[in-house]
Design a protein around this nucleic acid. Structure first.
Lengths: 343, 343
DNA sequence: CCTCCTCGTGGAATCGATTACACGAGGGAT
DNA sequence: ATCCCTCGTGTAATCGATTCCACGAGGAGG
């Protein structure tokens, strides 16, 4: 029923299937007359090649898999969007998998992506040691890490370096008089989870400030964990003056917790976040954040992956993040650097 | 190289490929001994069936296509997440396409989804008359509309009805003394674009209020259009007292415009939005919004589609939306009905 | 005029699964 | 003992493309 095949086209055009295939793939030589008739037949029948059959034969799907950590996180959806856009421009399709920050769900998606014989894999690993990711990379599936990576795996990495921006942030906070600074970290098993803490600690050290364990909240990059960590901070006998959330969702959770406690930002406690999102302009108060060049990251990741697939030598890329000061840490000293929401 | 096939498994297990296939598909009768050896071989070789070949033969991919209007819109990502979750529970995979509210991009994705021979299509059409969607539905691809639909096409629709909630909203606004109410509409070509205006107009009529053309802003469900429409409202000689944005992104744009103008919500102008998102709790001020039961919509849509695919009779579903009052329209009278961000 | 190449073309193998059909062995009924 | 079913299994066709190889026609060069 729903089956117009290459044979039907061949019959209508009065040629063999080989010739039809050659026309469709701009292969070898085909006479203008035959090409004409084939194209006419394709058109008349509304023929579309069966990509399953094609891929089975050629062992290429022109499809990339992208496993993102959390679709509900605006940072990752922005990343996904730019990845898809660049891939489309390069003639590839993207199949997404949403790991929801759960390693087993990540593995599920990687498994089904590999089963679909994608040409390459783009991952921001939800944990440090997923055996499947490692297997995939070792087994020869072209793989690129984006945002997060797994140390010791020889795979290109596209990410942004937030250290300078974190230093700027700490300078800003110190300048406002804050001395007791806390962080809500991501999972230690993720690079972004541990690196941001390290960067924060280093930056504090430059001002002779320590980062006591009680001021390190353990989160999982999701809102609920940000709320829990913040509640714990607020219950301390000496609560921090500033909470720095390692991603935007945990910052949301922190706001929830602060609000539930009846406190005000920044008067009672200051807040800053990693990852900038359009809503931060309009929160109460506007949130000071570290912005990543999301679109560039997505583009670079796709380019690295297609380079790998097509036999060129891929480049790891590290782009700088930058601090965007708003009002959530106190007195707003600089000129307004807020972003428009469609920036 | 990267090719462990069913033949290899058969050879190692000392059986034919037919037997291997039967074991893997829990088909007909296989002796326990043979089954045992096959499973052992599968395990030892780390064999994974080639889904391309399988689908080519069986003409089923156990994959559904979901074309959403905009990945950057939290409403749609929440929908996508629940769709994927339910599909996974039912043994299906999802391939997403992001239309970015652009009909031609929507068609591109529908095209590639059909080329991939998905078993069914879930669409929230970006415009009213995409020929491809119609073709797909008519050509026999099981199709379900979600959120938005195209009138006159005989396809199940899963959506929510906001009329009651809009009436509640208008009652709330009227009760606060507002009389000049404006709306930022979505594209007229989308059902959600026109219906929300109609519901708003009806509700106003119940209070003897009119909806002049000048108070209908034409948006496209994206932030920039919300900003433009709001700027136009503010430039009127008699600006509205309330702006009701037909989706959350246009509400974001409206906030941008209001803020740029140096005005305050709700003191200078009130704001309400269709679609509730976690950030609305923390904006300045918290935004009164109409919440859709996103998770239920996603689940119902997948069930309707799989019913269609598997030969059961699918059900169209309409679920009610509900008003969530916060502070953005003025004096906060009711008890706090804000949502926690992980609700 | 004969040979040789090139060009356009078609036949058929192939990718890796599923599945209709055939077949032999074994058990129960008569 | 004979017949017939059932059960487990293998052989081979098939899905819809791509692509190697062979082949005939026609032009160029000797």
């Amino acid at each position: 029923m729903a089956g117009i095949g290459i044979k039907d086209v061949a019959a209508r055009a009065g040629v063999s299937v080989a010739t039809v295939s050659r026309v469709l793939n701009a292969h070898a030589s085909v006479s203008p007359a035959a090409r004409e008739r084939v194209l006419a037949a394709v058109d008349a029948l509304g023929y579309r090649p069966n990509t399953l059959a094609r891929s089975l034969r050629t062992d290429r799907t022109r499809t990339l898999g992208l496993v993102i950590s959390d679709v509900l996180n605006p940072y990752f959806t922005a990343l996904a969007r730019s990845v898809e856009e660049e891939a489309r421009a390069l003639g590839y399709s993207i199949i997404f998998g949403n790991a929801d920050e759960r390693p087993e769900l990540q593995d599920h998606h990687i498994r089904t992506l590999l089963d679909r014989r994608i040409d390459g894999l783009l991952v921001s690993p939800a944990d440090g040691g997923s055996p499947l990711v490692l297997d995939a990379a070792r087994a020869g599936t072209p793989t690129v890490f984006v945002d997060r990576w797994i140390p010791g795996v020889d795979v290109p990495v596209v990410r942004s370096d937030g250290r300078a921006a974190v230093r700027d942030l700490v300078a800003h906070l110190h300048g406002l008089g804050h001395r007791r600074l806390a962080i809500i970290a991501g999972p230690a098993a993720t690079t972004t989870g541990s690196e941001r803490v390290a960067a924060f600690r280093e930056a504090l050290a430059a001002y002779g400030l320590a980062l006591p364990d009680a001021y390190i909240g353990q989160g999982d990059f999701q809102a609920a964990s940000g709320r829990r960590a913040t509640e714990r901070f607020l219950a301390l006998s000496e609560p921090p003056e500033v909470v720095f959330a390692a991603d935007n969702l945990m910052a949301l959770g922190a706001l929830d917790a602060i609000r539930a406690r009846g406190l005000r930002v920044p008067h009672d406690i200051a807040l800053a976040a990693f990852d900038d999102i359009p809503w931060f302009v309009h929160t109460d108060p506007p949130v000071t954040a570290i912005a990543q060049p999301t679109d560039d990251l997505g583009r670079a990741a796709v380019r690295a992956l297609t380079d790998l697939i097509e036999g060129r030598t891929p480049q790891s890329v590290t782009l700088p993040a930058r601090l965007v000061v708003r009002g959530s840490c106190g007195e707003h000293l600089t000129t307004d650097t807020t972003r428009r929401s469609d920036a």
